[in-house]
Amino acid sequence: MPMPEWLRVRRGKDAGGRDAAQWSKCAECGEMLYRRDLAANLYVCSRCGHHFRIGAYDRISTIVDGDFTEIGGEVQVGDPLQWSDRKSYPVKLAGDREKSGLSEAVVCGFGQIGGFDVALGVMDFHFRGGTMGTVVGERVTMLLEEATRRHLPCVIFTASGGARMEEGMFALMQLAKTTAAVTRFMADGNALITVLTDPTTGGVSASFAFQADIILAEPKAMIGFAGRRVIEQTIRQKLPEGFQAAEFLLEHGHIDIVVERRLLKETLVRFLDYTAKGAAQRARAEAHA
């Protein structure tokens, strides 16, 4: 199968050149960064180390070795509640498709990381704030089911504002659906690794993000169940700086490691290596039995 166009573009000599003329301002230190340099530096500020939010296809191109075969692209939402407030839900979706270049808030598929075959799911905050509706739930479930069939480990990058309001209870039910898929995947002896990126909250945080065997997070990523604003309104006081940051969660024992983006791939490779060795050791033990 030929390499998909988006991956070829990102791997070519002119990587980052799609928007070469653009500059981006670092939200943390204010530095003006040349878009091409920023892409080459994995969307991390070269001055202060701030991790920019990164699109799903950019993420995949920085993580997988070679090719990536997407699955679930055909899964497309209807409008189950016939939702319409300031705009109708289909109009909101069309707008986000146009803006983000994505068909939905997660991209799922298969590829290799450091020579290990993996199932890979990557959420993208630029589409409806990475919220989980029926498409995200269905694609993640399909990914886990296919990974179970192939006996492959699964890596999921999360970035989500929670469940998608416009799909109401259908969105909430995706927590149940993905959980069901996670339990079957795990019962079959496969490893789930999640990488929590900025932000990971609500329904995604309260389901597969925190059901993983190994939980990594990017520096300063905001991670929690309730959003900052909701908590502040409830307790009627300002939350301290760094509350719900990845480092806060590490300190409180919620996650395994905070990993800088430039070290992320090699970290994943090391854990995939343990996973593969474990599977081989188990197979050998079973052969003796």
Binding site: P4, Y57, E74, V77, E138, F170, K177
Partner: peptide, 21 residues
């Protein structure tokens, strides 16, 4: 139980508009 939750939202399958990338 698995099937019950597996089905919810699985109706949402049509041809997706291609991503622009």
């Amino acid at each position: 139980r698995y099937e019950k939750y597996r089905r919810i939202g699985a109706w949402a399958r049509e041809t997706a508009p291609a991503g622009r990338f």
